[in-house]
Write a protein that binds this DNA or RNA. Structure first.
Lengths: 327, 327
DNA sequence: CCTCTAATTGTAATCGATTACAATAAATCT
DNA sequence: AGATTTATTGTAATCGATTACAATTAGAGG
């Protein structure tokens, strides 16, 4: 590949002038610019981002850390991030942590090593101290999941309110024995949605029963099935289920179906996230919709501001309860 | 952030020695190594990948281009790529082209600009000439979708055979009016699977009817529904459907259900890819499974070999027909 | 204690760009 | 024309690492 030196020689100018053409500085004469552009074309030259980045000490790369790309919840967020990033001249590196501390270390080092300029963090399971420490010296924003005590900016929704409204909806359609399929409570959203669930129960003087609570380990369909199986095997079976993720709710739906019960008459089901598949289930799934694309855009804007050294403020966006056939 | 110079000064050695410690050269005395490591620790130093990359003229970054991250088909492939890449000391940049030529240009330039060392290409819709031209000078491999005429290495499956077997399976369970929901035939897999479909028809002396073929535009659930709606509205409705993607098949399933027909008795359905959702539908979906994780691993290995200047050979991997409730 | 070889360490060039500052060319003004 | 200002272009330092080669130090042998 050609370098800027070769272009300069071919065009009969200095490297500085070539660089000026590249960065379209207005201080270069039209005829010179033309010569340089000819040379660039002739040599099929493209500037090395390596040299430029070293000089400017930036990489124009954003690290996006997600627990798992297979969860459709993240795809819209990522679209938002990518659109915004490209618009601002950044590219993104999408990295799946798999909640694996070794990967975490690798990816965090990409920022320490200046391979990336900042991190959009969506993986809540990552070692808290590491994150806080990294945030001391490098730009980080949290998206969706965040650390309430920390001082790291975030964009998310009001999970407690959303869960409260979802459960209240179930109560209003006459359900009282409402089961709760939750994630591991190390996740903030899990704790907050649980609080919302309990708040609704308290408001209607219903008692929160441990037997109707189930915490899954892995966020996939099978966990939802497994959870529902356990819940159905009880003497006093629930008449509704609130799952903290559509993926779990769909697994539950499947299991209810397998046991010959009807949704929503026997058991109503409500999920969370409004993933696109949630409209394809039988029956279609009632769910809580989050403004995922916007969350992505906002977190990208936030991290870029942070990289530029500007101040940013955390935000909580609006959610919406989408009532469909399953309730 | 500290630089190698500061570490050298603090440790009382030259930058060369620090570099040697960093790259654990064996020509450094144990006591010196210790001093340097102390300094590194004290300054919380991490080497800048920018400087190193410039010097080594490599980025250790692999570009992975996919049409859309929301298609679950790709997630397993990506896992394979990522695992292999990390193991070989590479990181990946996952990029969604959205089949958008502008994005294509941006991402292709990342290789030209040496921001990435090579490309794993899964987006078939990209301008063919651009790809071939880029492949002249830069490492590219194709995964899943590929260019038969080109000379670019690929890893994929035998789509024609897989489709042939799928359709034959439908014929064997007594179906004769087999509809075909296909993608745009600009895609190789679409053309090949169509060939397989026709081959099965010919073998059983069945005539391929245009009215049972439907080409979708966008690969999502809604397209599958739309396609099925059209197929059902015909006087002579099909008794089976072969869709080239589970996503489409699931949409079709939904539509069949909505029209009150039974799967598989009235209409059998078969998909392609074995995405994880396909086991959550009602009824569960018969589908063709591809070794996606392995495809990912192999394509990563191939591109890394190419980057190192080694020769690589294209491969076709084995597929498998997974028979479930929908047929 | 001195020589000679082997083991360490240091010096300085290099990768490919950007940019402050200096130098030159062109344009404007007396 | 000559002086002065302005527009263009060039020179060389710089970013942070790696590494060939030179220089130094240490160890072995006499």
């Amino acid at each position: 590949m050609a370098t800027i030196q070769e272009v300069a020689k071919k065009a009969g100018v200095s490297v500085a002038t070539v660089s000026r053409v590249l960065n379209n500085s207005h201080t270069v004469k039209e005829t010179t610019r033309f010569k340089v552009e000819q040379a660039i074309g002739a040599l099929n030259y493209a500037p090395s981002v390596l040299g430029r980045n070293l000089r400017n000490s930036e990489s124009r790369l954003l690290l996006v850390l997600i627990p798992s790309i297979s969860n459709p919840f993240y795809t819209e967020i990522i679209n938002g991030i990518e659109d915004t990033a490209i618009h601002e001249g950044y590219n993104i590196m999408l990295c799946e942590t798999d909640s694996n501390p070794q990967r975490e270390a690798i990816y965090f080092n990409l920022v320490r090593n200046r391979m990336a300029d900042g991190i959009i963090l969506m993986d809540p399971t990552i070692n808290r101290n590491n994150v806080l420490q990294l945030a001391e010296t490098h730009p980080i924003v949290q998206c969706s999941e965040f650390d309430k005590e920390g001082h790291i900016s975030y964009v998310s929704i009001n999970n407690e309110l959303a869960a409260y409204q979802a459960v209240k909806h179930l109560i209003k359609i006459g359900k009282r024995k409402i089961a709760f399929i939750n994630s591991d409570e190390k996740f903030l959203y899990a704790r907050e949605r649980k609080a919302g669930y309990e708040k609704a129960f308290n408001e209607y003087d219903m008692s929160v029963e441990a037997k109707w609570m189930y915490n899954i380990q892995k966020l996939n369909f099978e966990s939802g099935q497994q959870a529902m199986r356990t819940l159905l095997n009880q003497a006093d079976r629930p008449d509704a289920v609130f799952a903290v993720s559509d993926v779990l709710a769909i697994g539950a739906l499947k299991e209810i179906h397998a046991s010959g019960l009807n949704v929503p008459n026997d058991i109503a089901v409500i999920g969370f996230d409004k993933i696109s598949f949630s409209n394809m289930t039988y029956p279609t799934l009632t769910t809580v919709s989050q403004p995922m694309y916007r969350m992505g855009c906002i977190s990208a804007t936030m991290i870029i501001k942070k990289i530029r050294g500007e101040k940013v403020e955390s935000m909580l966006l609006e959610h919406e309860l989408i009532i469909r056939e399953s309730t």
